[in-house]
Amino acid sequence: MSLRTGETIKFRSVGERTEYAAKILSADEDTIVIETKPGARPELSAGQYVILIAAETNYNAQIMSADASQVRLRWLRTDKQEYFRVDDFFPVVARKVEKNLLDTKASMTVTFSKEAIDRSPPDETIHPKLWDLLVSLDEKLNLILDRLNLEPEPVEAEPQQVNISASGIRFMIKDKVEQGDMLEVKMLLPTTPMVSIVAYGQVVSSECLGSAGYVVAVQFVNMDSEVRDRLIQYTLNRQREIIRKQRQLE
């Protein structure tokens, strides 16, 4: 659903439960201006994160400026476009960053293996296609352990279960994070060649699983169009692969 000028909505600050009424003065693809009654809302300031609520749909935004009655915001995400999501298994590491890094663009690096591996089966008892698959997996795992690090201390990242789309990712993290925190997320897509992506996003949910850590959902912000297109392509290809394997098992 698109927000319309003149529409009455509710909003709340990230991490807060109290909702306040507001009227939309203007809205476009990048910004939105809302009007509130003087004294009928909490103190708001530039840089603060809020959630706009309209017809049971949530929209995340960041305040650009605020005076006694009007608030100007920019979108962090809208639900105007939904991206395809898939469950997957690959390495992800993340760390908290300052919110002023919100303007930092996502980046992408295509990685190649430095050593050529003999793809010939060691003997006739191993099917060539199976051996080729095993060699490909070995190449990918070696790159995973070699390439994906966090500064300043190198950290080997084990593959884990994730749910990913071009708009966000859900994964496990050891360190405590809360809704509204900003994260730098590094991931290594198991493609050929492999693609390393560094993205930034806002934590929209965080569930503690005890000593195992936290399951966090991160909404990407300021996503570079090239990186977004690569993620769209990757999730579509993964879905086709999943469907093909399911049909082979039937």
Rank of each mutant, 00 (worst) to 15 (best):
M1G: 08
S2R: 15
L3K: 06
G6R: 08
E7A: 11
I9S: 05
K10T: 06
F11D: 01
S13L: 08
S13G: 08
V14L: 14
G15M: 08
R17S: 11
A22F: 05
I24M: 08
A27K: 06
E29M: 10
V33P: 01
E35A: 09
P38N: 04
G39V: 07
A40L: 10
R41Y: 03
S45M: 06
G47M: 06
Q48N: 12
Y49D: 09
A54L: 09
T57P: 04
N58Q: 12
N58F: 03
N60I: 00
D67Y: 12
D67P: 06
S69D: 09
S69A: 12
Q70E: 15
V71S: 00
V71E: 03
R72M: 10
R77D: 11
T78F: 05
Y83D: 03
Y83R: 02
V86A: 07
F89S: 04
A94T: 02
R95D: 05
K99Q: 10
K99A: 07
N100P: 05
L101W: 13
A106Q: 06
T109C: 12
V110C: 12
V110N: 10
F112C: 11
E115R: 14
A116G: 08
S120W: 12
P121Y: 04
I126Q: 12
P128E: 01
L145H: 15
N149I: 02
L150C: 05
L150Q: 04
E151W: 06
P152L: 03
P152D: 04
E153S: 14
V155D: 07
Q160A: 06
Q161P: 12
V162M: 04
I164C: 03
S165V: 03
S165D: 01
S167V: 02
R170D: 00
V177R: 06
E178L: 04
E178Y: 03
D181L: 01
K186V: 00
M187V: 08
T191H: 05
T191M: 07
T192L: 10
S196R: 11
V198D: 04
G201F: 00
G210N: 09
G210R: 05
V216S: 02
V218F: 00
F220G: 00
V227Q: 02
R228I: 00
R230Y: 12
Y234A: 05
N237T: 14
I242S: 06
E250S: 10
